[in-house]
Design a protein around this nucleic acid. Structure first.
Lengths: 336, 336
DNA sequence: AAAATAGTTGCAACCGGTTGCCTGAAATTA
DNA sequence: TAATTTCAGGCAACCGGTTGCAACTATTTT
């Protein structure tokens, strides 16, 4: 009942040609005559021939697909994926997405799966609690280039694209100072080893630049859970000296922090101004949204990282003339 | 410099065995002796042998991967993808995700790509404005089963998993009535042909059940843009008789509608209660969130759809005893 | 002791393309 | 006219596994 799926050999049989000729004719190989080429392409169209991608991948040792590893497809990385897709599709590549849920073990597993699937290259943002990147070592052996983005491990000799936050954080502090704030707190994310801690650096630099003294108890670290943020807020606010503005690690944290201040303990403390990083589109619907945020341009990061990846892919044959690339883009302070 | 990637033939050469023996030994084939099997597996471990998935896919005509087609990886479909992944990974399958951005042309393109990649099966939520599903026809020829979920075309003889909304919508109306509302509006999504319009049905049924008359001007249709929602709200509120409660198509729309009422035209109209469908986690941070929402269980839908897909995949050899499945799950009214 | 059986392993085809090299015919040049 | 070049197409190996079947050895049965 079901139609047979046409293959090259089938078409060769029909046209009484060899399959190599058909293969070449389909790709407009110059060695094949015009008449033959047209004949073959006509038949291919009639039969709805579609090349078997599996066979091509196998024979060319190229899957024409790249792997993307992110912690989670939240709004932020979703934007990054769009950038990656746009670049990949423009190069006729497919995209395989895997989420690590920020767990090192899952990251190792999905990386292994991708290697076994023989993706041609990988764009990755490492897990927050990955202690190392040795699991990426094997990609070298398999000649699979890797470009890290956004969360970039702090080791030499890798491809990376990331968005520096220190300068914008200084601006963030300056902005708050210009609004009259002098007691500025920072609730940072977990302090994991392989990733740079630029929010903290910018926080210090911003205080120095504005001639403010840093109060160490204004600096808190929270895991990224709601409860963790509540605890950090609790500690922060239980101190004698209370901040008048808080810089939070990201928008999810700012939501929790604001919620704690205004809903969990309403009226207990004077209101506080918030500023944050990245940006959830839904934040703008809040009655009192954060005053400002630092845009980290996830779309652009994803796109750039993929461009780097393709340069590495094309340069695989000449590794000596294709050194690793490390691109840094500047984040931007956005005031509502 | 780079290590060679070990293959079966390489190991066969080292052990002076045939490659078929090595191949079988690696998979614990009973016909292979214990000593040989152990020997082979020992060497495989030493060499870090990893089977070439491309070669396996090619020779078995199975890619061990399924395709997922959704309009966008927003929060809602993101949950669905988790359900799909959980089920797929449990069956040692990989997942390829593609977003259509709700455009028919992109849907056709990604579907074609997946077919060329020879995914073993597809789980799809069709684009909102897809006029038909004929582009899925070719999957039959390629023996690629398709399971539609969430947005299910209303045609016979397909696999589908969806969540009925009519009963919950009746409950939604009843809930609002119990809160004293008698003038209840509905801002629905675009009325596209292939997908059932259960919100509207439930809206009518709910009015009948509660002995309320339906005012046609309380029923609006908006595209899913912010501006579209603003316009619908504007029309709704410009009428002499104003609603005291509004049912919105989804949470994004409720955010825009509330924003319009409270921020764009503040104080102009008496406040209105909102209820909605699905649920953004960030909604709870609003000062006046919707009172209730209808949970559509995207995770469960995704998981169930994938289970159906695997049953279809396993039944491919016996299509006569594997009829299409159509599962319907019940949505649930959740009151904050 | 011959025959049947069970347990191992190898041979070779196959999956559907790609590609280096060869061949034969036609066209051009010497 | 013979030699050379060009053009068009075919042959066969290859990518790295899987699999049906044959073959060989050792053991058991008759």
């Amino acid at each position: 009942m079901q139609n047979k799926i046409p293959t090259i050999q089938e078409m060769a049989r029909i046209l009484k040609l060899s399959k190599s000729t058909v293969s070449r004719a389909l790709r407009n190989h110059p060695a094949i005559g015009l008449r033959t080429t047209q004949q073959v392409q006509k038949l291919a169209k009639e039969l709805n021939y579609e090349p078997n991608q599996m066979a091509i991948s196998f024979s060319k040792k190229k899957t024409m697909s790249i792997g993307v590893i992110v912690s989670s497809l939240d709004v932020y990385f979703h934007k990054a994926v769009f950038g990656i897709e746009d670049c990949a599709y423009a190069n006729d590549y497919n995209v395989l997405i895997s989420q690590t849920r920020d767990e090192y073990d899952i990251e190792k597993k999905v990386l292994e799966t991708m290697r076994k699937q023989r993706v041609d290259g990988i764009v990755a943002s490492i897990s927050r609690n990955a202690p190392d990147i040795e699991h990426f070592e094997k990609c070298k052996q398999y000649n699979i280039p890797v470009v890290f983005f956004d969360r970039v491990p702090d080791v030499p000799n890798i491809n990376s694209v990331w968005c520096r936050l220190d300068i914008s954080t200084v601006e963030l502090v300056s902005y708050l100072v210009s609004k009259g704030h002098e007691k500025i707190a920072l609730i940072n994310g977990p302090d994991t080893l392989p990733i740079k801690n630029e929010r903290l650096k910018g926080y210090y630099d911003g205080h120095i630049k504005n001639g403010l003294k840093v109060h160490e108890h204004f600096i808190k670290v929270a895991d990224l859970s709601t409860v963790g943020t509540y605890e950090a807020m609790d500690q922060l606010l239980s101190h004698r000296v209370k901040p008048s503005a808080i810089i939070t690690f990201n928008d999810y944290m700012s939501l929790d922090a604001m919620h704690y201040l205004r809903k969990v303990k309403p009226g207990r403390y004077p209101d506080i101004d918030f500023v944050t990083y990245s940006n959830l589109p839904t934040t703008r619907y809040l009655d009192r949204p954060p005053l400002a945020y630092v845009d980290q341009f996830p779309y652009e990061q994803g796109k750039l990282a993929t461009e780097v990846l393709f340069r590495q892919l094309n340069g695989l044959a000449h590794p000596e003339t294709t050194p690793p690339e490390n691109l840094i883009i500047e984040s931007k302070l956005v005031i509502y």
